[in-house]
Design a protein around this nucleic acid. Sequence first.
DNA 1: GCGTCAATTGTAAACGTTTACAAAGCCATT
DNA 2: AATGGCTTTGTAAACGTTTACAATTGACGC
Lengths: 349, 349
Amino acid sequence: MKAKLQDIADRTELSIATVSRALRSEQDALVSHDTRVLVRRVAREIGYQPNLLGRSLKTGRTNTISYWTFDAFSAYYAQIARQISEQAVARGYSVAINNARDASHSLAAAGTYETDFDSTYADIPMAAHYDGIIAACDVSFARRDFALVKRPPSTPWVGINVSYDCDLDHAFLDLYDGALQVMRHLLGGGLRSIAIMIRGGKTLSCDPRVRAYKEMMEAAGLPMQHIEVEAHGRSQGRASMVNYVENSRALGRALPQAIFCVNDEVAIGAYRGLCDTGVRVPDEVRLVGCDNIEDTAYHACPISTVAMPVDEMCSTAWDFLENRMREPELAPQQIVLKPQLIVRESSQF
Amino acid sequence: MKAKLQDIADRTELSIATVSRALRSEQDALVSHDTRVLVRRVAREIGYQPNLLGRSLKTGRTNTISYWTFDAFSAYYAQIARQISEQAVARGYSVAINNARDASHSLAAAGTYETDFDSTYADIPMAAHYDGIIAACDVSFARRDFALVKRPPSTPWVGINVSYDCDLDHAFLDLYDGALQVMRHLLGGGLRSIAIMIRGGKTLSCDPRVRAYKEMMEAAGLPMQHIEVEAHGRSQGRASMVNYVENSRALGRALPQAIFCVNDEVAIGAYRGLCDTGVRVPDEVRLVGCDNIEDTAYHACPISTVAMPVDEMCSTAWDFLENRMREPELAPQQIVLKPQLIVRESSQF
DNA sequence: GCGTCAATTGTAAACGTTTACAAAGCCATT
DNA sequence: AATGGCTTTGTAAACGTTTACAATTGACGC
């Protein structure tokens, strides 16, 4: 079967302990030079690979962290997952992606992410022995106390993506500020009729983007216009947009001059919906998305969006996590990163 | 610390073996009903979670498989990764995504996937104890013998995505057939000047899409036209397209009537490149991509593409893998799945 | 020749499980 | 009363490491 320490010990006529030391220790410490060379040669010859289970069981360290998320594979979240992964490899860790969507197919099918961490993160991620956790949470989660999330006690834990006003480690994006930039841009262009396109329910009441939108509209003395989508994907954005335009025409209601979409996928869907109904972008309706996924820049009419400092967020989160693993009693480490509005043709004046 | 079997044993005044049996065995086998109930109650009370490392070390099973890939997070591959993940959860497994790109930052940055499995899959995935491996390989790999890939000996292994003409388990996509459909469509529309847009080098000589393109063009007595891209991403597609159009204009050379792009990202980039240079799609140039990533359907001019049966491929691969784990001596299990051309506006006549 | 020290190696326990085997208890059959 | 079989439980070894501690060796200074 697979080679183990004992096999090397047999062949070299050394004890298993010496073999272990010869393989692990840096330089020629703890073991003579000749032994070191011999052991390593034999290890290579018989293709020895350490059994990580045995090692981890003894050391209590797995060199694996868990990335908890609601959605690892759609464009924006995939950027984050990729970054977390690459950082992991660079820092000598493996990462297990624990995707809440996987655990709830029906929810995934419906495209809704209103998932309960406690119920979907069932036994496997809880029982597995991770050295740390990076959790990217959803906006729908915002009102809950991050600290209440069920997780292995005393496992180092860092939150990313969306803010929760808690005193745990986190590297968050300032969605509120991003939305302010969008609204200043649109209002600054002289627009008076601006809608926001986002899911209803809990998300609507919690989302910092909605808060920024509301405040800016109220400050300008303008009424709020909410276009609802069932979920934050392309298809829902398109369906909702087509429906909205047709209704507006039936009612003789004017379309808004601009629509601020909760994310780029919805914006892309809305864009296509406007194409479907023959509404010109940006002449009749201006469009702004959020997240800066790659595709926004490639449309015939490139779509304005808000760029998120994903790389910085992820590497900071990793720094925080490594600090916490080294020094468990550290004070909470927190950073809130500013996004950056990117104006493209879809909202140019 | 964390609760373990011994803690339950102490509290119930049973032996550790009985506790283990009470927790694991189905029904009331091997253990009396009362004991079973008692043990489970105490386990819940003290929040017992089994230590997966200890268990796996003993049983030799980790209930984890590895997904080997060159790129887990771009749109098309993310679809596959998601499907593999969801299937894993549904079947009671965890999946570790071992991404070759993570291991080679420079390559990732360059957007080139010409990575060597042997060198990038270094120690971690080799040493980790996986029950099985699903490997999604790249076209650039096509000429090599799949069987030569370095991997833990005797670990069940299934190949997906691209064919390698080997006798190992695989669930492959018939890219050749997909490309035939594209070429029949374009030639059937009466076009005479058709280019293919793909990376040069090894990829160009190996790719079954190129083979289909060549054969069909030769059969029609038409010359091959190759537009090279540096890598198979949007930005490279755009840059290459802009460059090609400008050169053509400078040389007074006519543009091809259609371009068959190696994948959708390149097609989207090319589409944008044609917008940049003021070339109309599909009136002047027709465009066909490959993979059917979601974005293609949402552009102002929806892009024709080839839909891959990703879900079927992944669930079949999982079936194969589970069969192989159960029955190591099974004959090679193989299936080659047909893609399906989707004609959209970008190549309508 | 003896004690001290450093360098190297070995012994054995531990990490938390699972499981083969043995043991004990009980009941029914002879 | 002895035998056999069934149910339930316990004992102990094993999975492959790491590491505290002990042991051995040789060199060296006195």
